[in-house]
Amino acid sequence: MISILRSMWLTFLHVFHKTETVEYPEVKPYLPPRYRGRIILTRDAEKKERCVACYLCAAACPVDCISLQATEDEQGRRYPEFFRINFSRCIFCGFCEEACPTYAIQLIPDFEMAEYDRQNMVYEKKHLLISGEGKYTGYNFYKIAGVEIGVKGKGEGENEEKPVDIKELLP
């Protein structure tokens, strides 16, 4: 009985507390850089697309709202022919960012994406791709990978030996 009255009293005292509400359109809240908002595709330091179209983001997506098609340029560098995110389905869980092995796909602290027409929520590559590196700078997947696609020759990457001369006779 006392505890009931006490909790009523304590609740009543909240009349004198400061409200926590941020009046959003007039006051913009602070969102940390790792806030999971709009999804972007980034480029590496050489301004080349980071995305290698590995399909891991699409596979990680719990609502299956990412679809893409891989293709290759003349040098064998793989990139998405199209990359589509249906934001009307996206739940901003960030799994795609976690799955991405190249830091290409990133979620940024922008969430103001409301549209009157749902069709406008479908973002293609041209809407997603930015010209910078986003949150993570300095990473270039192809310098670490073993493939040769014009970024580095065989054996010139980080932590790689020169290619084996298979005609060498020394044991």
């Binding site: 399909y55 299956d64 679809s67 249906n86 479908v122």
Partner: peptide, 11 residues
């Protein structure tokens, strides 16, 4: 794990 169901025809 078929992916992209809700995006492949969204265009």
């Amino acid at each position: 794990r078929y992916s992209g169901r809700t995006a492949m025809n969204a265009n």
